[in-house]
Design a binder for these strands. Structure first.
Lengths: 229, 229
DNA sequence: CGAGCGATTGAAAAGACTCAACCACCGTGG
DNA sequence: CCACGGTGGTTGAGTCTTTTCAATCGCTCG
């Protein structure tokens, strides 16, 4: 469990690192990275950065989950992505030379390391493997977002919810999906009331079960069929 | 006007190049590029590449426009982007190591140069300015697509159409917007019939005028207000 | 001149949203 | 220990947007 305070993690032994963009780092690279990062504890619902602010560096998730979102006209959040341990958050804005167009906020208590912009860019410049990994990651996400757009445009809310639950099941892997109904609605792109009604239908169809706010997936294949994947 | 056949363009003198990712190329770079590219004529509605195929290189638009799209379940197109002269199409898939997740098809007669994958990647490897330009471009598009997703999720069809017309007015700059109603509907993310009805409303409100299929923007600011930008 | 595609219109149905009220859980402070 | 306030979750009813289906029109191409 997470201590309610700053906890120092060493990059050399960090379990999340091997799944990350830094996964290929040799020992020297890792120890260099370790010297340039700081390690921070974040409370639940604490922002990493907000829209319009200027990027100062990147965040490497060691423990906990973070939502990435934009806001529509009336301030309603649209969640674009939910990042899990091992993911680097905020590196896109390192290259665009612009302020953040998205915001990031913790969904749980988190342990997150921070790497300064200059240090990060320096690593990218000097490490071709890291650089290629980043370019691959950027490209893949671009493709993911094209699919996301198509889903939003062409699928019904029911289909999108089924799709979202399948995605979230992977992100939450061992645990159960644990989001407020509002966050889930903002991920699916619908009203909270509509979301709740559909969840009930899914329960009636034995696709899921709810335990308070947590959602247990009973029939992943059924959800995938419903989502049309 | 475009000749109905292959037309050779030299990179050194290409007008579209200076707006492109190759815009910063010095003379030596340009002439190197020129030696590695081929120049091709494309008919209207001719595919550059389709979903699922393997990337062989990148396409540099010299003249004409190209739609980039994915397909939903029933094969319905969702247009993600419309590329204009100066844009490089298909470079995302160069880095992902995967097959194309999107497809590209010409909307008009086009003159398009092709650069082989190996040559392109070699340029990226050896030219830091080009590389940084690409990383900046990838990052910006990622942000654009986040906005796109939010628009799809939160705006009404009317707002999305207004927004789309403003975007298209920039893309078509000097000319009038010239798309089939179906393509426009697939860009906005709606049914063709709905699109036509809304266009009529916009005409009644003196926001636009139609000349056969072409759309003339009369009140861009009015459209922007409607779109909520 | 006819075929066929793209554009347009009408009517009905469905999906989703809004608004309003109510419930349930949780932590706080008395 | 319990009442209180607040947030998050749930339900109902009515409305509106958007889609669907069907039919018609009009232009272009062979």
């Amino acid at each position: 469990m997470l201590e309610k305070s700053h906890r120092h993690v060493s990059c050399e032994t960090c379990g999340a690192r091997k799944d990350s963009l830094f996964g290929s780092f040799c020992e020297a690279d890792s120890s260099n990275l370790n010297e340039h990062k700081t390690c921070n504890y974040f409370k639940k619902n604490q922002p990493l950065f907000i829209e319009g602010s200027n990027p100062r560096g990147v965040f490497c998730l060691n423990e906990g989950k973070v939502k990435i979102f934009t806001r529509g006209e009336e301030g309603k959040e649209q969640i674009i992505h939910i990042a899990k341990p091992g993911e680097i958050v905020g590196f896109r804005a390192m290259f665009s030379g612009e302020a953040y167009k998205v915001a990031a906020t913790t969904l749980e208590e988190c342990n997150i390391c921070f790497i300064n912009k200059a240090d990060f860019l320096n690593m990218v410049d000097t490490n071709p493997v890291l650089r290629n990994g980043i370019m691959r990651e950027l490209s893949k996400e671009l493709a993911d977002r094209a699919t996301f757009i198509t889903n939003m445009a062409q699928k019904s809310v029911r289909e999108r919810l089924a799709f979202a639950l399948v995605l979230l099941d992977d992100i939450y892997s061992q645990e159960m999906i644990n989001l407020t109904r509002e966050d889930l609605a903002n991920f699916v792109g619908t009203a909270t009331e509509t979301l709740i009604r559909l969840l009930k239908e899914f329960k009636d169809d034995h696709l899921i079960e709810t335990h308070a706010r947590k959602i247990e997936i009973l029939d992943k294949q059924g959800l995938m069929n419903l989502a049309g994947v």
